[in-house]
Design a protein around this nucleic acid. Structure first.
Length: 150
DNA sequence: GCCAACGTTGGC
DNA sequence: GCCAACGTTGGC
């Protein structure tokens, strides 16, 4: 799950412990949250569009997808005037912090790891803010996170 | 700031 | 339904 740390980063989640993953305005990602994510599932927290892009930690999904309240809020940057409460266009899931990594596992390191050659987020042109991770990819990244940099 | 890539929009 | 224009994303 990608987020820009200048908007909401892992340190914000350390403070909040849990948060609504709101503001998703992409249909593929909405469907993924609705159909593929389940309470108890684990996910990586990825920092994007920042000086040090990479995996910053892990989170757990703690609730089923529900309508994203920000779509109804005219004051929100995520307001969607076309969406109605009868037929909400956008969903959010709740996540809680599992672990903040001692260091960010950087993009270059991810790319240099053979076990991550197929990682969705590394694919050219990938723009989805939520993408699937295989069990093997999960283990590989956790392994990198537990290792000293270099 | 640049650029590639992709999703969305809207005219036809 | 096609497709060009446009907006957004995200690494560099």
């Amino acid at each position: 799950m990608k987020s820009e740390p200048s908007v909401y980063g892992i340190d914000d989640l350390v403070r909040d412990r849990r948060t609504a993953w709101d503001g998703v305005r992409n249909y593929q990602v909405r469907n993924f949250m609705r159909d593929a994510m389940r309470p108890g599932d684990l996910a990586f927290f990825y920092h994007s569009s920042c000086p040090e892009p990479g995996v910053a930690g892990t989170v757990r999904i703690v609730g089923a997808a529900r309508p994203d309240p920000t779509q109804f809020d005219p004051r929100s940057a995520y307001h969607d005037p076309k969406s109605t409460r009868d037929a909400p266009a956008w969903l959010t899931v709740e996540v809680e912090l599992v672990r903040r990594y001692p260091r960010v596992v950087g993009l270059a390191e991810l790319r240099a790891t053979r076990a991550l050659a197929g990682l969705a987020i590394l694919r050219r042109g990938n723009r989805l803010s939520v993408t699937p991770v295989t069990a093997a990819e999960w283990r590989a990244i956790e392994g990198l996170a537990g290792r000293a940099a270099g």
